[in-house]
């Protein structure tokens, strides 16, 4: 068994769906399917590993290899986004209906015209035509936002904040009563902190100071979560390099 096949088999042992086994069991006419092809899979792992190193090379300093990977990433991302938009939105909702049964779907010319109007954004003289498409998009989003915001942002949060201190869902424990008070004080003090129609002096100033302390707690938790999310991505990349690329069994 050569090194390539040894790596492939080792990798197949590491991953749950056992690529080589699946590939071997596929009918011969499906062997060209890329993802199940061990060769393509192995090449893919090498490309991914090299690109990972190229990206990490930025930690040393901005360099040519990083710039190459960065521009490659931009191009690949845009290309993928084009494919997603075409295959998931434009083709099934506009292209296919218009080109398969035009007479039944001719109403779709209207959104197509609105869409084409957006392209006039590129013209200095006729950019006003894009206002039609923009008005349609922005207003439909604005109209949808009103009931959604009332339900999700206002009513739900008020419902969860202003609860009985004891009895009902909160129960009778000291901790639940204390937590309810902490929440009510927090919500009101933060709202007062963001209320700029009154000068933050005297009682208002003191309450808004309490609001700042609550906000600091929230920013601290958000920061902690962000750090953890980034480190978990870092662990993911290290796992990829060690397990899939180098073939080391971890854990």
């Amino acid at each position: 068994m050569d090194t390539f096949m040894a790596n492939t088999v080792l990798f197949a042992q590491l991953i749950p769906d056992r690529i080589t086994e699946i590939y071997a069991n596929l009918p011969a006419d499906q062997h060209i399917t890329w993802i199940y092809n061990p060769t393509m899979h192995w090449i893919g792992i090498w490309i991914a590993a090299l690109l990972t190193f190229a990206m990490y090379s930025f930690l040393y300093k901005d360099n040519v290899v990083y710039k190459f990977a960065e521009h490659l990433y931009v191009g690949i991302s845009v290309g993928y986004f084009i494919c997603i938009t075409w295959f998931n939105v434009m083709k099934p909702n506009l292209y296919d209906p218009l080109f398969t049964d035009f007479s039944y779907n001719k109403i779709l010319i209207i959104p197509a015209l609105f869409g084409v109007s957006m392209l006039f954004r590129l013209s200095r003289q006729y950019s006003w035509i894009s206002r039609y498409g923009l008005a349609y998009m922005v207003a439909s989003g604005a109209g949808l936002a009103i009931p959604a915001m009332i339900q999700a942002m206002i009513l739900r949060h008020m419902w969860s904040t202003f609860v009985p201190l004891w009895g009902g869902q909160t129960g009778y424990t000291f901790m639940s009563i204390f937590s309810s008070i902490v929440i009510i004080v927090g919500v009101l003090s933060v709202l007062i902190y963001f209320f700029f129609s009154l000068e933050h002096k005297g009682a208002i100033g003191k309450i808004s100071q309490v609001g700042i302390l609550y906000l600091m707690v929230t920013f601290g938790t958000a920061f902690g979560y962000t750090v953890m999310a980034r480190i978990s991505l870092l662990i993911g990349r290290m796992q990829f390099l060690l397990e899939q690329w180098m073939g080391r069994q971890l854990g």
């Binding site: 993802i35 490309i47 990206m55 930025f58 490659l72 991302s77 993928y80 991505l233 990349r237 990829f240």
Partner: peptide, 17 residues
């Protein structure tokens, strides 16, 4: 294949930096 082996690793590496 291109997405899994190019975009995904580059994206997660960039954010992990």
């Amino acid at each position: 294949w291109l997405f899994d082996n190019m975009q995904v690793p580059m994206q997660s590496t960039m954010f992990s930096i």
